[in-house]
Write a protein that binds this DNA or RNA. Sequence first.
DNA 1: TTTAGCACTCTCGGTGTTCGAGTGCTAACT
DNA 2: AGTTAGCACTCGAACACCGAGAGTGCTAAA
Lengths: 345, 345
Amino acid sequence: MELAARKQKILSAIVESFIRTGEPVGSKSLINETGLDVSSATVRNEMADLTNKGFLVQPHTSAGRVPTAQAYRYYVDNIMKATPVSQSGREYIETTLYRSADSPESILQGASDLISQLTNLASVATTPDGEESRVHRISFVQTGSHTAMAVVIASNGIIKTKLFRCEFLITPEILEVFDKALNKTFSGVKLSSINQPFIQTAAARFGELSLFMPGVLMAIMDGAKSAREISVCHSGYTRLMFAPDIDFLTARGVIEFLNNEHDLASMLENLPIDTSVSIGYENSRTELAQSSVVSTRYAVDGKPSGVLAVVGPVRMDYGRVISILESVADTVGTLIGELTDIDLD
Amino acid sequence: MELAARKQKILSAIVESFIRTGEPVGSKSLINETGLDVSSATVRNEMADLTNKGFLVQPHTSAGRVPTAQAYRYYVDNIMKATPVSQSGREYIETTLYRSADSPESILQGASDLISQLTNLASVATTPDGEESRVHRISFVQTGSHTAMAVVIASNGIIKTKLFRCEFLITPEILEVFDKALNKTFSGVKLSSINQPFIQTAAARFGELSLFMPGVLMAIMDGAKSAREISVCHSGYTRLMFAPDIDFLTARGVIEFLNNEHDLASMLENLPIDTSVSIGYENSRTELAQSSVVSTRYAVDGKPSGVLAVVGPVRMDYGRVISILESVADTVGTLIGELTDIDLD
DNA sequence: TTTAGCACTCTCGGTGTTCGAGTGCTAACT
DNA sequence: AGTTAGCACTCGAACACCGAGAGTGCTAAA
């Protein structure tokens, strides 16, 4: 639905004023604040129209108007211009993230921290999934007389370590045997196909040698699993409790939801590829009906992968949040790209 | 201060009733609920006395009495009997924790989760400090053409991995050289003495070889540092928000405090060795003035080390919480003890 | 189409008023 | 001397009421 120029101007002014002050805005004060060249009565007429069309509501008869989710939606889609991040802001993002550019997990934890800090809201980020990657190599390190560590190096640059225990005394020779046999079996295998049946077939192939291996095989399976699985980083839940318009129940609901790995992951999975804004009840989750979620995906080697998202009150500065998210997404994408490029032959 | 038998009985009844209901308790209702064989007037007289002595307060003239922190203190010290954990409860604790008995960190994260789940409150736990431990061994794993991982194995069983990057192409031979040279330098060295100066002296000793090593040395220093430092696990902050008597501001303050690694660590450090209860304003931190902290330390090989703690409303079931904490502490102590015993020669 | 004017509506903050739970005190009782 | 019944008193919670102020919708004139 397209709105006439003046209606749009008035709607925009209302949304911006409300985002700023959080107070319902009346016809008179709107004229005072913005330099609109019409009388309050005209504004009132337009407002009545916008109310009929579903863009505004009145908390009660004698109060000003408050924008509905539909108004925010229109504002975000048709009016708002993204406030681009300044040069110095970009540099800050790059240098901050570069400092934690060790592994995908630490990059994304850093990104989440950074986003939360810049927006002053809660933030979540997911690592790229590893469904398509393969085992690059598996190494072993002795950590004790009966314990050792398996290091699973995946083709997407993710490295996972798992400890395991053996009944027998571990020697360098034994680890050598493990290394040879297991790399032969696992190298190049897709992470997603390393499951219980695969492990059992592998064990069968090793014959009696497999008796020595239950711990190792489990460790590898676990390692492959966690290298394959998306992991969710989050940051700044307390900031949410300081955000305006967020009362106890809302904050509690949102934080509880964000802490529930399963539900959160399933929501994040379903987010679109582009930057998107979910306002209030547009969110599928009732816990988020009082909040908005702004999300985007970063691209690794041109392919959209993990998501970066911000959760905050409906009344937030969408323009600023979107541009911060997109800037960080850019940087995260390149950093992770470099990680995978350089490391593998 | 010792109280006469009847006074003590009344105080106890008031505290227990208030813990249960959260309502100020009056003389009449107290008689109804407990089987006290005196009249309400007598109870009133005793109550007036207890109020003078500072054990009770009235929110207002015509309300019942509410126990003060002093009353809880007296109750915890003189009246309360610890509710021992049942046999099945103990078994549950043991089997749950055994499942995550890989490393000290995972044990303590598991312990924190478990405590929070059992008490329905927020919980924090710290790993043992590594000030006294030494480097057992350092191993290297190649992870890419220019990257590798240093594995620092400490004498207390803590294992830390750090990634590093080299300008030159890494080969197994180079890692071999690193392994020899660095284990010679670092094996047996106290973690606490591996700092910037130590690294610099070491680098000087390697002569021109050290030019190849800045990344490795940094990785080792970082690894040693994180193996030495106490790490704080926490769990169940959302549960705190569901606890009775915890309003938005209190919850926010407490959670913000718990999220501040530095402040939290300094509080935990100063906790006594025995099980202790800090009630309301007894806490040094103003953020915790509305809450109570119950804490204990687990012992590894007979030596008190990390702490387990619960944070919750003043009105909590101290007996239950204390016994849960102590049970978990027992199990954590033995599990960590086994970890360090078995793994080193 | 815009605007001035006006009657109307509804919240907010302050002010009684009632009701009930709980108290402290006193005098009688054991 | 300690305990208890009785009673007057206190204070907060709940509710109704009121006036001020902000904002509206409608109408009639520009």
